[in-house]
Write a protein that binds this DNA or RNA. Structure first.
Length: 204
DNA sequence: TGCCAGGCCCTCTTTAGGGCCTT
């Protein structure tokens, strides 16, 4: 897999914490090369137990839909191949990263790819947004969408568009052509009041 | 025993508390 590919991913899960026994029930992902979507991945997966009514209502993913889905282990084996050699992005990446690491650990695959966070970047680059929930940012930036949220591929698609908006904002604000993934990783860790100083140093 | 997410980030901060964000 080429090293310049970025996979923007989103998990739907049975809850908030793999440490408390929660599992993934759907993975959706969009692969970008030089800002263009070149591949997609979407798969429901059976966690081995029933999802509660809140999750079914929140995601629209029912136990009936999951009953015939392949196991998490089967799906994650395929997904590990999909993301091999790629850099990763998610909205509130700490959430998706812990589920990705937990599900990959079950099939004895380490999670070693660098992981950028569109939430941390949006808090820095779109400070005027009403808030930084994914749905709000989609409206704020007029990102094209089909009105479906909380399904993995739909959320991954709009997060990929958000990623491109974030890189475009860096380009526009600091005259930085094609900001690298590594630059975005560093930027998401900068205190807000030091953004100008940081970018000035980067562009010098 | 009782409780049960956790990282980020702001502020009435750092010997802490609470909102934001993800499902």
């Amino acid at each position: 897999m080429s090293q310049d590919a970025i996979v923007v991913l989103d998990f739907e899960t049975t809850g908030l914490s793999p440490a408390q026994g929660d599992r993934a029930i759907e993975i959706g992902a969009v692969k970008l090369k030089q800002g263009v979507v070149v591949d997609r991945f979407q798969q429901l997966m059976n966690p081995g137990f029933a999802v509660n009514s809140f999750i079914a209502g929140y995601t629209g993913i029912t136990n009936e839909m999951l009953r015939l889905a392949p196991s998490c282990e089967t799906v994650m084996t395929d997904f590990a191949a999909f993301i091999d050699g790629c850099q990763l992005v998610a909205h509130n990446a700490s959430f998706d990263q812990k589920f990705l690491a937990a599900e990959l650990a079950r099939i004895h695959v380490p999670q070693s790819q660098p992981f950028a966070c569109s939430l941390l970047l949006a808090r820095r680059l779109f400070q005027d947004a009403p808030n930084h929930q994914l749905g709000t940012l989609v409206s704020y930036l007029a990102i094209e969408n089909d009105g479906v949220f909380h399904r993995a591929l739909n959320d991954a698609e709009v997060t990929a568009s958000l990623w491109l908006e974030l890189t475009a904002a860096v380009t526009q604000r600091w005259a930085c052509p094609a900001p690298s993934f590594e630059l975005m990783l560093k930027l998401q860790r900068q205190p807000k009041h030091q953004l100008e100083r940081f970018m000035k140093k980067q562009m010098a």
